[in-house]
Design a protein around this nucleic acid. Structure first.
Length: 545
DNA sequence: AGTCAAGGCCAA
DNA sequence: TTGGCCTTGACT
């Protein structure tokens, strides 16, 4: 059994959540618009060697630590749980990765045209231990996650291949690619915390991140087994509460008039509450031409659509088939996912990516919560992120509270901050520059390559100053005021961190997450400094065990 | 010849 | 009825 499986097996929640669903409004057609001729490209990306050519550093969390280096062993790389019951996946069956038992169950049901009834409310929770209790709901879930009736052969012919073969291949390639990206991100973060090949004793949050299976699009088939059996996905959808609205940003390609080139600034001013230069008279296209290429590049590192997709994807998958979920726990999972995205972003950015892992770790440990708060401000101001959203099960999820790291009482402070930024006409280039300033903090203790961090910080600082002077000449000392906002963000984030830590200590927050690891790292005697790594590591393991 | 997703078999 | 293991056969 792999690390993923053994850890994930401890929580049935995690098990059933992995790939159970995609939000009903998820644009699956755009999620996989690839024509067949792109398959080869996909595979090449998926099989590309890791930067160091080894496929893993000591301490890096890997789904199957011993085999990840083997680029061709896809079975070992793709470690997932059955979307129906959470049991171990045995391969692709009837359209998607499922376990052996659900494969058999689905086959028998379709072949024998079984008709089941549910003695409850047709909403039984299906997991490994309870899957036998209600075949009606089990079959319903099989259909809902995307198992395909048409893959069960009417003629019962054995062997061979069906039309889904190429889709399985693409899906596998995509998972490999995702796995590798995750792996690299985790290496960045874990590298400095591991010692002597030890692996931190917590699971990857990716075990609970929804993995989109390309071919699990729920669909009604002409080969339905029986009208009396589980209702079709369309009916199911009608019975479900409406998912939250799609990301407000849906036209990132639309260039702002402010941008000098069509792809330089991709933000959408129409959804903003704060002004972007495009909405002001002061920033003319002539001035825009003087915006530094570096800031243009910074803006291009932002993927807000992905941010919201993964947010809503996680929210929906975590509540799929769940009557009620613990909203605080859910919030922690979202924060955890955001944190991983944060790391992913950081490790691909200029200045940061050239630093040694230890330095990267220290910078991230110091800035992660500030960046989460800032990201949230950005999402609210520039993408119209609402205060709350309705989950798949009808519960309301407080998105504002998410930005407050779970402290509702900070809402007022947060809104004041947002208003202050709005007055400053805080825009996307401002946001990304401030984010860099938060990350590249040369004052963080214990940084080895201080010069590199300071250079980066000062370069961004200069670029931001130049940008604000060029594009917002009428806002007096916009730069200075923006810089003054940083401590406020930090204070807010610190309050949130404390709150999260306290709830964690009270046993209310999910353990074994990167989020908790970060919270602990900052509260260690050395404050994250790697003076005695072995001791720290042991203490981390002790706390988590 | 190897792979792997179909269907089949059969003990529990 | 379930689910782990076996057989089959198109595809690579």
């Amino acid at each position: 059994m792999s690390v993923t499986q053994s850890l994930a097996a401890s929580t049935s929640q995690a098990k059933s959540d992995i790939v159970t669903s995609v939000p009903l409004d998820y644009d699956m057609s755009s999620a996989d618009p690839k024509p067949p001729e792109t398959i080869e490209i996909d595979l090449k990306i998926a099989y590309v060697d890791p930067p160091n050519g080894t496929g893993g550093e000591p301490g890096a969390y890997l789904p199957s630590a011993g085999t990840v280096c083997d680029q061709t062993d896809t079975k070992d790389v793709i470690e997932e749980l059955c979307p129906v019951c959470g049991d171990k996946v045995s391969g692709y069956h009837y359209g998607l990765l499922t376990c052996e038992s659900c494969k058999g169950f689905f086959k028998r049901t379709v072949q024998n045209k079984k008709v089941y009834t549910c003695v409850a409310e047709r909403a039984c929770h299906i997991d490994k231990t309870q899957r036998k209790r209600c075949p009606f709901c089990r079959f319903q879930k099989c259909l809902d996650v995307g198992m395909k009736l048409e893959a069960v052969r009417a003629d019962r012919m054995r062997g061979g291949r069906n039309k889904f073969g190429p889709m399985y291949k693409r899906d596998r390639a995509r998972k490999l690619q995702m796995m590798r990206q995750r792996q690299i991100a985790v290496q960045t973060l874990r590298g400095s915390l591991s010692d002597g090949g030890l692996v931190l004793g917590f699971s990857s949050p990716y075990a609970s991140v929804p993995v989109k299976q390309e071919i699990q699009i729920p669909q009604v088939s002409s080969l339905t087994s029986s009208p009396e059996s589980s209702p079709g996905p369309a009916l199911l959808a009608a019975q479900q509460p409406q998912p939250p609205p799609p990301p407000a940003h849906d036209k990132w390609e639309a260039p702002s008039p402010h941008s000098a080139s069509p792809d330089a600034f991709a933000f959408d001013g129409s959804a903003t509450t704060a002004a972007t230069p495009s909405s002001t008279a002061e920033a003319t296209s002539t001035e825009t031409l003087r915006v530094s290429p570096m800031i243009r590049e910074f803006v291009q590192t932002i993927d807000d659509r992905e941010w919201q997709n993964s947010l809503f994807g996680l929210l929906q998958s975590q509540t799929y088939n769940q009557c009620e979920v613990d909203l605080f726990e859910l919030m922690c999972k979202v924060l955890d996912q955001n944190l991983f995205s944060q790391v992913d972003w950081a490790r691909n950015t200029v200045f940061f990516k050239y630093l040694k892992v230890d330095d990267q770790m220290k910078l991230l440990q110091h800035s992660w919560s500030d960046m989460l708060v800032l990201d949230h401000l950005h999402q609210r101001m520039h993408n119209g992120l609402p205060d709350e959203t309705t989950l798949h099960n009808g519960q309301k999820f407080d998105l504002l509270c998410l930005g407050l790291l779970g402290v509702p009482s900070l809402a007022e402070h947060f809104n004041e901050l947002q208003n202050k930024l709005a007055e400053l006409k805080f825009d996307v280039p401002d946001y990304i520059c401030v984010k860099f300033l938060l990350l590249l903090n040369p004052e963080v203790r214990g940084i080895v390559n201080v010069k590199c961090v300071r250079d980066g910080y000062q370069t961004v600082q200069a670029a931001l100053l130049d940008y604000t002077l060029t594009c917002y000449p009428t806002i007096q000392d916009k730069f200075g005021k923006l810089v003054m906002v940083v401590p406020e963000i930090h204070a807010l984030a610190a309050r949130g961190e404390d709150h999260l830590y306290q709830r964690h200590c009270a046993g209310q927050a999910p353990t074994q997450t990167l989020l908790m690891e970060m919270l602990h790292a900052k509260r260690k005697p050395n404050g994250g400094e790697m003076v005695n790594r072995s001791a720290e590591h042991t203490s981390t393991l002790d706390r988590l065990s």
